[in-house]
Amino acid sequence: MTTSPVLDTPPHHTLVVLVENKAGVLARVAGLFARRGFNIVSLAVAPTEDDRFSRLTIVVDADSAPLYQVVQQLDKLINVVEIRELHPSHSVERELLVATVRAGPELRGQVMDLVRIFEARVLNVGSDAMMVSLSGSPSRISDFARLLQDYGIMELQRTGKVALASLDQISQQEPDAE
């Protein structure tokens, strides 16, 4: 089976980056990745609980650069406040998928089965297509997308994952922070 960036995630690292919520910060981060030759697999950004800061979840292609270099170069950006690498086993990762699937009346039931199995949602139904959404772990999203492929995906958009350290990880880290 051929690999697809939508369905398969290459070897990667997940960085959660706290940045100052200022104009142009995303451009600085993106520019740094471009000029240093680091590849971004996905990027999600939004303000945090503290409106002075935004949080970026960056999935970095592990083959494009040593993680240490990526982290140290990122840390040189004045607006970057904190960088954490999240290990999949010590973090909670979520992603949202929205897809339009080719499914006329005769196939609608089969797609509905998948929707039920994955606890996905139907957003929209047309005469020959359905729009569905699923939020969940990136691997679950990939599984769902792969199965939808059999029916013919007309359009598909993934958000890129957001992630936070799982709670055991936070409590483990706190003594170090002092």
């Binding site: 104009a23 142009g24 451009a27 600085r28 520019g31 740094l32 040189k76 004045i78």
Partner: peptide, 14 residues
């Protein structure tokens, strides 16, 4: 110029 110089300054401000 802040866009142009972002890659070649330690930092810049508008």
């Amino acid at each position: 110029i802040t866009g142009i110089s972002a890659a070649i300054t330690k930092h810049n401000f508008l």
